[in-house]
Amino acid sequence: MGKLNDLEAQGQAVWLDFVDRKFLAAGGLQKLVDEDGLTGVTSNPSIFEKAMGHGDAYDESLKAYDQAHPDAPTMDRYEHLAVEDIKHAADTLRPIYDRLDAKDGYVSLEVSPYLADDTDATIAEAQKLWTMVDKPNVMIKIPGTLAGAPAIAATIAAGINVNVTLLFALEAYKRVADAYVMGLEERVRQGQPIDRIASVASFFVSRIDAMIDKAIDERVKDGDAEADALKAVRGKVAIANAKMAYQWYLDFLKTDRWQALAAKGAQPQRLLWASTGTKDPSYPDTLYIDTLIGRDTVNTMPPKTMDAFRDHGTAAPTLTQDIDAARHVLAEAERLDLQLDGVTETLVGEGVTAFAKAFDDLLGAIAAKQPTAA
C-alpha cells in the first residue's frame, strides 16, 4: 500500500488523466489498478491527439478499418480508434465497477469539442458514443457551457453517465449540478431507475492560478501599492475556489430536493479535480493533490503528477480545512480586482478552443494516414 492508496482511505478516488494504446496493451492501466488503487480514467482531445497523432501504435487497427470501410470519413476513423481504447479501459475497470456497485470504475470519452455551443448536437453525439462503446462503465464528457447544461440534463435523463468538463466557476458548477438533478428527476417521472446513473463535475484548478498569478506578477512588477496583498494570495485562489465548490456540494446534499432523490438510490455527482498538474515550477508538484483531498471526490492526475504523489505526496483531509482562510482569499481576490469571474469565463472559452485545436490536429494526422491521401 502506497501514498496513492492512502487517498482511498480519505474517501478520494484516484483517476488517470491519460489514455494510450501501447500503455493499455502493456498492462499499464491494470498495474495502476492493482498497485495504486486506481478506479477511473479520463481522456480528452488533447490526450488522444498525443496518442494517435504520433507514432504507429494505431496504424494496424486503422488499416484494418480502412479495408472494411474504404470511404469512411476521418471522424468515423477517429471514433473507431477512440472507442477501441475506451472499450479496453472499460473492460480493465469493469471489476471495480461491479465491486463498487456502479459507484466507480469509469472511463470517460468526450463529445466533439466542435459541439460545445450546440445543445441538440451534443445530445445526439452523447447518445451515439454511448451506443458505440456499449459499456455500462463509460461516462460521456460534455462541457459545462451554457449550451452544455440542458444537454447534460437530457443525457442523464436518457440513462447515460456524464462527466461534465471545463468547469472553472462556482456558478457554472451550480448550473450543471442542477442539470444533473433535473435529469434524475425526469427519470423518476418516467418511472425509470436512477440508482446506477453516475456523474462527475470536473472542476479545473491549476489553469486558474496560472492566469491570476500572471496578473499578480505584472502588477507587482509595475509597483502596485497592494503588492504585499497580491503576493499573499498568489497560488491560493484556485484552491480556495475549489474548496468553496465543495462546501456548496456538502450543503446541497442536505437539501430536501437531493434527499428525495437519494431516497430512491441516486448517487451524488462527485466533484472531480482536473488540471491538477502544477504550471508554476516554484510550486510543489503535488500542490493540487495535497490541498484538495476530501470524501466523495475524484482527482484525475496526469502520469507525471501521479508519480510525484506516489513518491512524496501527503494524504490528509485537507479539502475541509482552513475554510475561513479560503473565504478570505476569495474576498481579497475580489477586493484586489483580480477578476476571478472574468478569468473563469475566459478559461472556458480557451479550453474549448484548445480542445478544438487538438481535435483539428488529431483529425489531420489521421487523415494523413488515409490510403487515398496524397
Rank of each mutant, 00 (worst) to 15 (best):
L4K: 03
D6I: 14
Q10T: 11
Q10L: 08
G11D: 06
G11R: 11
Q12G: 08
A13C: 15
A13L: 14
W15Y: 09
L16F: 10
D17M: 04
D17Q: 10
Q30T: 15
L32R: 09
L32H: 06
E35C: 10
T39W: 04
T39E: 11
G40P: 04
V41S: 05
V41A: 05
N44I: 01
P45A: 08
F48Y: 07
H54L: 12
Y58M: 08
S61Y: 06
A64V: 12
H69L: 01
H69A: 01
P73G: 03
D76G: 01
D76I: 00
R77M: 02
R77F: 00
E79G: 00
A82L: 01
E84N: 10
A89G: 06
A89D: 09
A89Q: 04
A90K: 00
T92I: 14
L93S: 04
R94M: 15
I96P: 06
K103F: 14
K103H: 15
G105K: 03
Y106A: 06
S108D: 03
E110N: 07
S112C: 01
T119C: 12
T122K: 02
I123F: 02
I123N: 00
L129H: 00
T131W: 01
T131N: 01
V133A: 00
K141Y: 04
T145N: 03
G148C: 08
A151R: 02
A153Q: 07
I160W: 00
I160V: 07
V162S: 00
V164W: 01
T165Y: 07
A172T: 05
K174V: 09
Y180R: 06
V181A: 11
G183L: 05
L184V: 09
R187A: 13
Q190T: 09
G191H: 12
G191Q: 13
P193Q: 11
R196S: 12
A198C: 12
F203H: 03
D209S: 04
I212F: 06
G223M: 08
G223D: 11
D224K: 08
K231R: 15
K231E: 14
R234I: 09
N241C: 07
K243L: 10
A245Q: 05
Y246M: 06
Y246H: 07
Q247N: 14
Q247G: 15
Y249F: 13
L250R: 14
T255D: 12
R257Y: 12
W258H: 08
Q259H: 07
A260M: 11
A260N: 10
L261T: 05
L272I: 03
T276K: 03
G277Y: 06
T278N: 10
K279F: 07
P284F: 07
P284R: 12
P284A: 13
I289H: 07
L292M: 05
L292W: 04
D296T: 12
D296R: 07
T297L: 05
V298G: 04
R310D: 11
P317I: 04
T320Y: 08
Q321F: 08
D322C: 10
L330I: 10
L330N: 10
A331M: 15
Q339G: 14
L340I: 11
T344M: 09
T346Y: 14
V348T: 07
T353K: 15
A358C: 12
D361H: 11
G364K: 05
I366K: 05
I366A: 02
A368I: 13
Q370S: 13
T372D: 14
A373H: 13
A374M: 15
